[in-house]
Computed example of a mutant assay.
Amino acid sequence: MALRQMPRGAQRMTYLGCATAALAGLLGAASPSQAAPDRDDGVLVVRPGESIQRAVDAAPPGGTVVLLPGVYRESVRINKSHLTLRGAGSRTVIVPPTAQAATPCGQAGDGICVSGAAGAPLTDVHLQSLTVGGFKRNGIWASGTEGLTVHRVAARRNGQWGIGLEKSVHSLLRDNLAVDNGDAGIFLANTAEEEAGALDTRGTVVVENRLGRNRIGITARRLRNLLIAHNTVIGNCAGVFVVGDENRPKAGMLTVRDNNVSRNNKFCPATKRLPFLKGSGVVLTGTEDSLVQHNLVRDNRGNSPLSGGIVLFPSFVKATNDRNLIRDNVVRHNAPADLINADPKGQGNVFIRNDCRTSRPPGLCR
C-alpha cells in the first residue's frame, strides 16, 4: 500500500529496518552513558553513541537538543517544560536499546516519554523531525502535557501506539507519519487506563498526518473540543474512531473534516474492546454534538459490525450517539454501505448533502 500526498521529506523515509542497517556503522564503541553532548547557548548537540537522556537532563529552560543523523539505541524521558528535541528526519532513528533500559520510559517499552505530574503538566515541549520505531509499546507516549507539539515524526512498527497522548491539552500533532503500529497510529484519550468523563482538550489539533497499515489510523477516546483535519488515512483496518462511553461529560463537541479516509481494508482480529475490524472508514460511537464534514471516504469494505463508510454505532456500554451532524462528505464504494446509522436509540443525528449511493437505513443519501 503506497501512502500518497506525502511531503518531500516524508517521501525519503525508508522502513526502520533499512534505516537501521544503513546507519548501523555509525554506532561507535562509546556507550550513551559515557559520552557527553556539545553545548552552546542552550543548544545541545548529540551525536550517535552519545546519550540523548544526558542532553535532555542538562538542557536549560527553553533549550534545544539537536540529534545529528544516526541510530540512537535508547529510550528518552522528558520531565521538564520548555524543551525542544529535534532530529534530522528519517536520518535520525531512535530504536530500543540492546540491554535492559534503565529509565522508567524504557522499562515500560516506550521510545520517548513526555511525563507531567498530576496538577503540574509539562508545558511547551516540542518533538520534531525524528524516526522512532520498534518499541514494545509506544513510539511516543505523552501524559499530563500542555502545548505539546509533535511535528514531522515518523513512528514505525511499535507494538501499541505510534504516537499516544493522555491527560494532555492544547496539543498539536502535525505532518507526522505513523505506519505498521500494533494499535492506533495516533491515539488520544482522557486517560488510557482509568474510567472518567471526557476531557476538554482545549483545542487540540491533529492535522496533515499520514496513517497506514495500523490497526486504527486515528483513535480519539473520551475527548471534547478536538479537530481532526486534512489527514490521509489509508490501508488500516479502520480509519478514524471517535469513541465515547457512559461517563460524564460525554465525548463530543469535536470536528472531523477534510480527511482522506480510504481503503482501510486490512483485517485485524477481535480484542477485548472491539470485534474484528476490516473496512471501517469513520466510526462514531457514544459521541454527541460532533461534526463530520468535507471528508473523502471511499472503498472501505468489510463485514465487521463496524464496517462501512461513515458509521454511527452504539457504544458497547450502550452509550448513544446524539445530535451529530454528518454533512457534505463524498462517501463512495463502501460496504456494507456508504452511510450507516446503526444506533436507533440515538437522538437528533442528521445526515445531509452527502455524495453517496447506499445507506442503512435507506434514505440517508438524500
Results as ranks from 00 to 15, higher is better:
3 L>G: 09
5 Q>Y: 13
13 M>C: 14
26 L>I: 09
38 D>S: 14
40 D>Y: 11
47 R>C: 02
52 I>M: 04
61 P>H: 07
66 V>H: 07
67 L>C: 01
75 S>M: 11
78 I>K: 02
84 T>P: 00
85 L>A: 06
91 R>A: 14
95 V>C: 10
97 P>R: 10
103 T>V: 11
111 G>N: 04
113 C>N: 03
113 C>S: 04
119 G>V: 08
121 P>D: 09
130 L>A: 07
136 K>C: 00
144 G>D: 08
148 L>C: 00
150 V>I: 06
151 H>A: 10
152 R>M: 08
153 V>G: 05
156 R>F: 14
161 W>G: 11
168 S>F: 02
168 S>H: 02
171 S>D: 14
189 A>K: 10
191 T>D: 14
195 E>T: 13
205 V>T: 12
215 R>F: 05
223 L>R: 04
226 L>F: 06
227 L>G: 01
227 L>A: 09
230 H>D: 15
239 G>I: 02
243 V>M: 10
246 E>L: 13
249 P>T: 06
265 N>G: 12
274 L>H: 03
295 N>M: 08
296 L>K: 13
301 R>Q: 15
318 K>P: 01
326 I>K: 02
329 N>G: 01
331 V>Y: 07
337 A>T: 04
339 L>T: 00
340 I>K: 13
351 F>W: 03
